[in-house]
Write a protein that binds this DNA or RNA. Structure first.
Lengths: 208, 208
DNA sequence: GTCTATACGTAGATAGAC
DNA sequence: GTCTATCTACGTATAGAC
């Protein structure tokens, strides 16, 4: 690649990011399903047809946001769970991962809605966009298994049901927070505060 | 009221119910936010302007559905919790109430979405429509308090946090079920199956 | 890569005849 | 209580000039 095409690629990536940012801002005001291409175009200073140079359709924008959001959320949880403070302590890793999940979701509420609920009628994420979610669940399972190996949790904690219950409890906190107290700051929130007690319920039940 | 106006009132109520039913059916196919008045009118065999005889605006239809749904959900939970099998057993009443909540939500998924999430940009329920929700939480609190009185639960179970945690766990199960396994029959469902274990987590933690 | 022009459809809501 | 006609606005998407 020569310098010219590099610059062109960088510029293109910048515009793409601008479009996605504008789409998110509009979803904040008009709802996730209420985003319109005309409004996005206005906000980035383009006419609607120009957007089709960057995304082939409206659902492609949703898919790009889903993909990026799933990747970011995965990374946030992954980072929290492999941070030096919790190295070698799987239970602390679970707690920190859960906290990171809630924190990220409150920082990115509209993308979190896109990930957790299905607010857009015609849209389902592509397999590629969905992949980081599966990866995140697999990693959670691995951490739980490590806790079982280390004698910290009962073997039943590594069953399908127990893992699903863990993720459901966390998703429940996020859902309630976003729906019923959406304006709270990350780290705050009437329902987000319930996360630690909720995780405690789970850990107590499955402790060995 | 004479016979004539009675009949007129009955007819009017019937039409109103028909319109609401059509709106719900359309939400099943097009998403909660995707319902349109034109489509509703087509389905009930009217032209769009005629709907304004029954509802002053589109959000009024959402509000009517919210009001009816909140009332029905309250009644279902209330009934389950005051059924003869569980009379005098507050813990069984809590379990049965939670089951009824999940069952109703799966039987009425689009209205459940309207109640649990906020899928429609311009719409917030009126106080009157929201009232049964508050009543339902108050009744849950009362049942928990009865369990504490009877020595079945620790006094900490009656705190604000504990009550909120109870409702959050149940709402979490419903949210996950509706978002990730929406086609399951009521009484079935990958996430709905987690309800009993989830309630058990809570009961165990707060037992005296 | 961005534009104008346009196709084609839809929306929510109101006026006023019947 | 229902209609026709209409307003006003918006939407996604494509064709084709520049």
């Amino acid at each position: 690649m020569d310098t010219f095409s590099d610059r062109r690629a960088v510029r293109r990536q910048g515009t793409t990011a601008e479009i996605l940012a504008a789409a998110v801002e509009l979803m904040v005001h008009d709802g996730v399903a209420g985003m319109s291409l005309s409004a996005v175009a206005r906000r980035v200073g383009m006419k609607p047809p120009s957007l089709y140079e960057y995304f082939p359709s409206k659902v492609a924008i949703y898919d790009a946001l889903f993909a990026r959001g799933a990747r970011e959320l995965h990374d946030a949880v992954h980072w929290a769970g492999s941070n030096p403070d919790v190295a070698g302590d799987p239970l602390a890793a679970l707690r920190e991962g859960a906290r990171a999940y809630v924190r990220w979701s409150m920082t990115n509420p509209v993308v979190a809605q896109l990930l957790n609920w299905r607010p857009v009628p015609g849209f389902a994420p592509s397999d590629a966009a969905y992949a980081p979610n599966l990866e995140m669940i697999a990693e959670t399972r691995t951490v739980i298994a490590a806790a079982v190996e280390g004698g910290l949790l009962d073997p039943s904690a590594a069953t399908e049901e127990a893992v699903l219950l863990f993720t459901t409890v966390i998703a429940g906190v996020v859902s309630q927070q976003l729906a019923n107290d959406p304006l709270a700051a990350p780290g705050d929130g009437r329902y987000a505060r319930l996360l630690d007690p909720a995780v405690t319920l789970w850990l107590e039940h499955y402790k060995s």
